[in-house]
Simulated scan of single mutants.
Amino acid sequence: MEFKQYIAQDLEKCTTTFIDVFNAEPWNDEWTVENATRYLMDFTNTPGFFGLVACEQEDLIGFIFGVRRAWWSGDEFFIHEMCVTPNHQHSGIGSALLNELIQALQPFAIQNITLLTDRGIPAEAFYKKNSFEEIERIVFLSKDI
């Protein structure tokens, strides 16, 4: 397995991976190629964007997209999306991607990594297993309009 920094030519493979992951259990989303591409491009076009991809030979098997941003206690990295192809999940690739991300962020003096995820799905357990902690004072709110 090889890790490399995301480049624009990776977008199509990242989109396919994203759809394969999030249109399946437990999310059961209904992403199309068009809206998933637009969604991921919103991240890649954001100032401070940084992405890593995991590859096996020519196959993209996972990625992390996020953004470096200023925070009062020091710069942080916010993970917007992370996924590993379904047939490669539970094999250590996600943890390896996180470890590679930590190494890649060292030159930027990042103080912490943050993210949002759904409660009660495998991602919650995965992040907690990888030393992420809930912040009790944070409440995520939403309103349909």
Rank of each mutant, 00 (worst) to 15 (best):
K4T: 11
Q5K: 08
T15A: 04
T16M: 08
T17M: 06
F18M: 02
F18C: 03
V21R: 10
F22G: 01
N23C: 03
N23F: 01
E25H: 15
E25M: 13
P26W: 05
W27P: 10
T32C: 01
L40T: 09
M41R: 15
F43I: 08
T46I: 06
P47W: 01
G48R: 06
F49G: 11
F50V: 14
V53G: 04
C55L: 08
L60S: 06
I64L: 03
I64Y: 05
F65P: 14
V67L: 07
V67W: 06
R68Y: 12
R68A: 11
R69H: 08
W72L: 15
S73R: 13
E76C: 13
E76G: 12
E76A: 08
F77E: 14
F78L: 14
E81W: 01
C83V: 14
V84G: 07
V84I: 11
N87E: 07
N87D: 10
H88I: 01
Q89P: 04
Q89G: 00
Q89C: 00
H90L: 06
G92A: 00
I93F: 02
L97P: 02
L97A: 02
E100P: 03
L101A: 03
Q103H: 04
L105G: 12
P107N: 07
A109N: 14
Q111Y: 13
N112Q: 15
I113Y: 12
T114N: 10
T114D: 08
L116A: 13
L116Y: 10
L116H: 13
T117R: 05
T117Y: 05
D118T: 13
I121G: 09
I121V: 14
P122V: 02
A123H: 10
E124Y: 05
Y127I: 07
K128H: 08
K129W: 00
E133K: 15
R137W: 10
I138V: 15
S142W: 12
D144M: 11
I145Y: 11
